[in-house]
Write a protein that binds this DNA or RNA. Structure first.
Length: 509
DNA sequence: CGCCTTTGACCGGCGC
DNA sequence: GCGCCGGTCAAAGGCG
């Protein structure tokens, strides 16, 4: 696998149907072996392409020589350095070479030509596939960004309207989502009047932050993301850029069955602590996002006490920087869940999810736990009940596959479990199964569709899902293609780097 | 050298 | 006030 060189940038000259490949006519005037060996790039590339389909492990630099040996051995012709002389002599001597030998040679050459033509066709087909996948990826990315932009625009308009018209109104059910965190945190101790005043200030903050968000896209800060570490990043416009400490109090917990010590979510994390938590024999690891200086996002990773095959990842906070495409899915998921938790209203969930035609297709119940008994309001997405047996994010060696499959899997229905809804101290929330499901399905519509295309099918479907996810997640198309091929070929691996795996295995047991 | 993990110390909230 | 607990800090060391 690692030896593949898939160069589709140039037409394959010698494979071209219009130019028949003839080893004796490769170099007009003779000296075929010498000239080829000294390297005409086109020809060398062509021969390298041949190796792509060969079962033999050729080195690129030696291919030409091997070809020569091939002719020499199989056709019983001396094609060594004296090839010029041989060819020349043959043309002079004419009948010295037996006609049966020539026939055999011609037959074998024809076979080789046929083989090459088949390879050429196959190569063309692969190129078309690559092109199509690339186009699909670009189209989906554009669509996704467009939807996110629309959603942000809607939210901004809603904020402005509320600010203009409802400055002195009572809190309404459809309060702007970002205004809710403080509102929620103060519920138990604030009077109605307090809520009104706080809400107004929150709304002002919201608009102010929106302005900052827009400004940030044009600031030199974004230049950070032109580094070669992350070739291309997407500003998650649905994700609020805020350092508001109240937002950090909301947590989104993702529970997933995985042997991997840590689920790769596309972000860069630095571990800053580890503690033994009460009631759990497995240590809890603390990570902070290191993709930008001052990013407030934290996450905790811990195996579940009741079932240590289940990994619980708890996110807290909102990224204050653009995210790589691979991280957008998870960040969007957690952000939407957090906002949903805080707003308790479909109309205020970031414009993320409005009503949709698929709502009736929901096969409840989902798994999402909202807990107010924890120190901080927490919504838990339980991904341990995959719709079709094996969780998608396990068993694929490309992190990108898990990055995308994991959040999406939470939203695949198929009777995946029950939505546990605990409102104990949550009088302010209303969140029905239907609402969550509506939002969830809307998210599905905004996500690259190939993910759920793959769901109904078994192994190949999963492979395809992993492949398409990898391609979608990886801005480097070549790398993504390699990952995709690996996935299709059934590679195994972890969702994290070997180093991390080793370390985390030691830690997490 | 930069980035990461490790790990003991420290801090603040909470219950008794 | 004290102890427990969750969360964070920061120095030390490892790694590529």
């Amino acid at each position: 696998m690692g030896n593949f060189t898939l160069d589709t940038s140039e037409p394959l000259v010698l494979f071209n149907k219009t130019s028949r490949w003839n080893p004796f006519s490769m170099v007009p005037g003779g000296a075929a072996a010498d000239v080829v060996a000294e390297g005409q790039d086109n020809r060398r590339n062509v021969l390298s392409e041949m190796d792509l389909f060969s079962t033999r492990n050729h080195s690129h630099n030696r291919v030409v020589v091997k070809k020569e040996n091939f002719l020499g051995n199989d056709l019983d012709l001396n094609t060594g350095l004296n090839l010029v002389t041989m060819v020349s002599n043959r043309s002079k001597m004419g009948d010295d070479i037996s006609t049966t030998g020539e026939d055999q040679t011609i037959d074998k050459l024809k076979d080789i030509q046929n083989e090459l033509e088949r390879m050429n066709i196959e190569n063309q087909r692969l190129r078309e596939m690559c092109l199509q996948v690339s186009n699909n990826y670009n189209a989906l990315q554009t669509h996704f960004v467009t939807l996110m932009h629309q959603q942000e625009q809607e939210m901004r308009n809603e904020n402005i309207q509320n600010l203009d018209q409802n400055a002195n109104d009572h809190l309404s059910h459809d309060q702007v989502s970002v205004a809710v965190p403080r509102q929620f945190m103060e519920l138990r101790q604030s009077t109605h009047d307090h809520l009104i005043s706080r809400d107004s200030s929150s709304e002002e903050k919201t608009i102010d932050r929106d302005t900052k968000t827009i400004a940030r896209e044009d600031t030199p800060d974004s230049d950070v993301w032109t580094s070669n570490k992350v070739p291309k990043l997407v500003v998650p416009e649905n994700i609020e850029h805020t350092n508001d400490p109240t937002m950090r109090k909301v947590r989104v917990s993702v529970r997933a069955r995985s042997e991997a010590p840590m689920i790769s979510d596309g972000c860069q994390w630095r571990k800053y602590g580890q503690k033994m938590a009460k009631g759990n024999p497995c240590p809890r690891a603390y990570y902070r996002c290191t993709m930008a200086v001052g990013c407030p996002v934290r996450k905790q990773v811990q195996r579940w006490a009741d079932d240590q095959t289940i990994l619980v990842t708890t996110y807290e906070g909102t990224h204050n920087h653009p995210l790589p495409p691979a991280a957008v899915a998870m960040a969007s998921t957690t952000s939407a869940a957090a906002t949903m938790l805080l707003s308790g209203s479909t109309s205020s969930v970031d414009g993320f999810m409005n009503s949709n035609l698929l709502a009736q297709a929901i096969r409840p119940p989902n798994i999402a736990t909202i807990s107010a008994s924890a120190p901080f309001p927490t919504i838990t997405l339980d991904l341990t009940h995959p719709p079709n047996s094996t969780p998608i994010f396990e068993g694929y060696n490309n992190p990108a596959a898990s990055q995308f499959a994991m959040p999406l899997q939470a939203f695949h229905q198929g009777g995946s479990g029950a939505m546990v809804y605990n409102q104990s101290r949550f009088s302010g929330l209303h969140l029905s199964n239907n609402e969550l499901s509506n939002q969830v399905l809307q998210y599905q519509q905004t996500a690259p569709p190939q993910h759920h295309q793959s769901q109904p099918h078994a192994s190949f479907g999963h492979s395809l899902s992993a492949a398409t996810a990898a391609i979608t997640a990886d801005p480097n198309f070549t790398a993504a293609l390699a990952a995709a091929i690996t996935s299709i070929m059934g590679g195994n691996g972890s969702t994290i780097s070997p180093k991390n795996e080793e370390n985390n295995n030691r830690e997490m047991g």
